[in-house]
Design a protein around this nucleic acid. Structure first.
Lengths: 334, 334
DNA sequence: ATGAAAGCGCTAACAT
DNA sequence: ATGTTAGCGCTTTCAT
């Protein structure tokens, strides 16, 4: 066709706002220009911060993002299944598909990259959680603590996160290396959820010999631990030190000492691994360039300090003395 | 087929993990069991909290969620266009499609519900932002403030949010009602972004007659305002009161006084409006049952107080005296 | 009750 | 260079 006609046609197309039907195009080409992201509890801050890295990176290459929230085990499988025909690639956060699911995905030509989960055959973005656990405990040891507790998630595949267990291993190693006793009493795990921090705080603080410091496997857990401790009248960090893991955004406001991992960067790198794979020229399976290991670092803030005097929960007048007190004086609007 | 055979077939299907191709099914049936959610800067806390309401509600009815992040104007249009053939319904947050896009969506049979945006013909979930602005200012007036500033977003359709402007209107109304002068100097708007709070704080605090209180159109802006003010050595709330809007999660930790809106609920209600529409029996256009108006309430915390003595930026020794100080003592891990 | 075939809207490989 | 057609994998309608 002539150039003028072409222009006119294109103009009309633009004017009418014609857009090819995505389903038909997907069926015909086998490509969707869409990436699936599956994550357990994707509205957790740590996941959101990874997403902040993923979304713009994907958008930059013209990919849409479809989110699969996994809150129960059956959703996990449903997510991995329903992906086929909907996405070109999968970014799985803190979760790995089963080998059966992986076979199916591979057969369907869906590239898979894992973030926050190691794997023998897949490209991954990880941190050394065990080392992270050691870093946290070493910090507490250096401050002079000797009774150090661990608070984490149970592992049931979805509600528990394997990262929590790895961090516990680091905790145990550091405690053992320091020549301290590994007390069962001081290791507490609970299913993921908002109330878990409070329950663990109450348990630990009512021990005959309560800990002087707690390493929580996540910042959210650390924060709820602190809130509960202060509700019980235990001052942080004067009477109890708490260190978290992740360095999510609120931790800055809360002044939480923590082991920081680069969440946003994990998302960017994960997205890039996937895009490279999609572009074709990706490295072979097991290519060392396809395992990205990100660095951890200690961020000292205001919730850890040298151990002070022992406290007793029974002592009187212990209400609301912490600096993290939350005043929710609410007033209804008329 | 016999019952036994049927069972055997179903077993094999389950074993092989066969799952119909989503694209083919979508093309054939015209339904995708997927809802599109478009939001500007979806990793903002306020959006995330809405998503926390949306995702589980959608999942409960077996719908997947596909997220379209809009950070630039052209992404906005691309999002509304690329939806067709990918989703059965659209939940648009803080953003409304143009009438042209709406026509196209309607022609394609895509139901649309707006959250945080009013509309003449569509089901919407909204709050009364103007009243919210009045609530904030009345609180400051009751504390005794007379020089009250407003800090908000500029409106450019994407980087500015219309909600900010509506809150400004409430601010102006309340100021006028109180018989106070509406000073241009005290109204500051900036494009959405992390640095905006700091810039506005510097501007306002360097005025010959600085405000004794600031109403920020969002909590994020309020928090960055506070951080900047304290960086300048101005104590909050002793020398400067700050009130925000939204009541996002960090606000609790930061002790921020704010006008709270039920973000999670807005998501749930939006999802329900959409599901009802999809289920067919939805009310007619303009049905009052399809505009959900959620209540606002004042949450008093620790960033507002009666006006204290005036401050001067030039005074000496003003560094780091606020309680919101952030200590980012970082130490690299070896 | 079972099987065959048309068609969803597009793309890509054809033949003209 | 242009036009025609087969086929993507499923659902649904229509014969058998």
């Amino acid at each position: 066709v002539s150039d003028a006609t072409r222009r006119r046609v294109l103009d009309v197309v633009a004017e009418l706002g014609y857009e090819p039907n995505a389903a038909a195009r997907a069926l015909s080409t086998g490509r969707t220009r869409t990436i699936g992201v599956v994550a357990p509890f994707f509205t957790r801050s740590s996941v959101i911060e990874r997403l902040r890295g993923i979304a713009p990176r994907l958008a930059a290459d013209g990919y849409q993002m479809i989110l699969f929230d996994v809150e129960r085990p059956e959703q996990r499988d449903a997510a991995f299944r329903s992906l086929i025909g909907r996405v070109d690639g999968l970014l799985s956060i803190s979760l790995a598909p089963s080998t059966a699911d992986l076979d199916r995905l591979e057969a369907a030509g869906v590239s898979v990259v894992l973030v926050d989960h190691d794997h023998e055959h897949l490209p991954v973005v990880i941190v050394d959680d065990v080392e992270g656990g050691r870093i946290a405990v070493r910090h507490l040891l250096e401050l002079g603590h000797r009774r150090i507790a661990f608070a984490g998630d149970t592992e049931d595949g979805v509600h528990g996160f394997p990262a929590s267990s790895r961090r516990r291993v680091g905790y145990q190693e550091a405690i053992a290396t320091a020549g301290l006793e590994l007390s069962k009493d001081l290791v507490r795990v609970r299913p993921h959820g908002h109330a878990s921090g409070g329950a663990i705080a109450r348990e630990l603080l009512s021990l005959r010999e309560p800990p002087t410091a707690i390493f929580a496997a996540s910042d959210m857990q650390a924060l709820s631990l602190i809130e509960a401790a202060q509700g019980l009248g235990v001052k942080v960090p004067e009477e109890l030190s708490v260190i978290g893991f992740d360095d999510i955004e609120v931790s800055r406001y809360a002044g939480l000492t923590t082991v920081a991992q680069p969440l946003g960067e994990s998302g960017v790198r994960g997205a890039e691994l996937l895009l490279a794979d999609l572009a074709g020229g990706a490295g072979a399976e097991g290519d060392p360039a396809r395992v990205v290991r990100l660095a951890l670092r200690l961020v000292r803030r205001d919730t850890t300090a040298p151990p002070g005097q022992a406290f007793h929960l029974s002592r009187a007048g212990r209400k609301d003395r912490g600096r993290h007190r939350v005043t929710d004086d609410m007033m209804a609007t008329s």
